[in-house]
């Protein structure tokens, strides 16, 4: 069971308290109705599924109930860092696991 740091609670909590909510940084268009078929396809269906670093959304469902973003390595399953919803995609990642970020 993983430990995940909730950026709102500012605590590491067990995975049981969280729920994954899919890939992060896929913005819904302000002009949704006007999206082309291609753009809608990209927005709704296409996901990156990388080997390595993935940016994803999690919800602290059995905690503060907030949605937040996380950087996770799909190879090691390690959480690199977590940050609040709405914050930009981090340009630089810390070298170690989220334990380091937590300090």
């Amino acid at each position: 069971m993983l430990l995940i740091r909730c950026p709102y609670c500012e605590e590491e909590r067990p995975e049981l308290e969280f729920r994954n909510a899919g890939e992060a940084h896929i913005a819904r268009s302000a002009n949704m109705a006007g999206e082309s078929d291609d753009d809608f396809e990209k927005f709704f269906f296409i996901r990156s599924n990388p080997k390595g670093i993935i940016y994803e959304r999690w919800r602290h469902i059995h905690g503060c109930a907030r949605f937040f973003n996380a950087v996770r390595d799909t190879v090691t399953d390690k959480f690199v860092m977590t940050y609040k919803a709405g914050e930009p995609k981090p340009s630089k990642l810390p070298k170690n696991s989220n334990e380091v970020v937590a300090k």
Partner: peptide, 10 residues
């Protein structure tokens, strides 16, 4: 959950 998701993130 669906409502909270949109309210919090979109």
């Amino acid at each position: 959950n669906h409502m909270e998701d949109y309210l919090q993130t979109e």
